[in-house]
Amino acid sequence: MNTPGQGRAGDVAIYALGLGDDALVLAQRMGEWIASAPELEEDVALGNIGLDLLGQARALLTYAGSADGRTEDDLAYLRGADEFCNVLLVERPDDGDFAHCVARLLVFSAYQAELYARLASSGDETLSAVAAKAVKEVAYHRDHATQWALRLGDGTEESHRRMQAGLDAVWPYVDELFAADELEPGLPGVAVDPAELREPTVAYVSGVVGRATLAVPDVPAAPGGGRAGRHTDALVSMLAEMQGLARAMPGVTW
């Protein structure tokens, strides 16, 4: 593996960190569903998705940390919420509502599928290797979310209502996925410009939403800022749980 950041002041590392944090935070959310899914088969399916995301997170955080000698665990367990650079979409709690879980996964996996497909040809060999592996994983996640969106949207009256509510709840966070920040323009041929992911991602999601007899929400975007470390309380409480033990006993091996 190469080391990111030479000559570019760790920009590649910061870029990898953002994508890695996305995957880590969503993996943590997926983990909350195991033993709480609507059916046993779905416990297993969501477990697989969580494990894929966690694998992506570990590869990306390891790479990001190699720039300044930090491990994946240093990055996952010893940063505060304001140092996390994930998008806000992934930190939203599902509150045990499967429709929210499906809506978020549909949007996020559609975004990741477009992102990784492009990142696979990144000039950075580590990022391109991570993306080449992940692109197959997220294709499955997107399919899984699609199947469920169709069934919930076009299932019963109640499920239609709930699935629409789930979409409405996640939709304000869609914009942030495609927001430009200062990073990508400085990494031509390495990073993917998020703005170019908007059209194909929204086209895919809208197609599914239509087939599911649902409506694309018409709601104002929520303030973004996740990539810059501006997060909601949901991330703060997630990290309190996730990092509690590791922080209580620093410097040991687990």
Binding site: E39, L40, E41, V44, A45, D143, H144, Q147, R151
Partner: peptide, 15 residues
């Protein structure tokens, strides 16, 4: 268990 064939194939993959 699966509600239909499409989901059954996918559940089988996962399980």
């Amino acid at each position: 268990h699966a509600p239909d064939a499409e989901m059954a194939v996918r559940n089988a993959r996962d399980v």
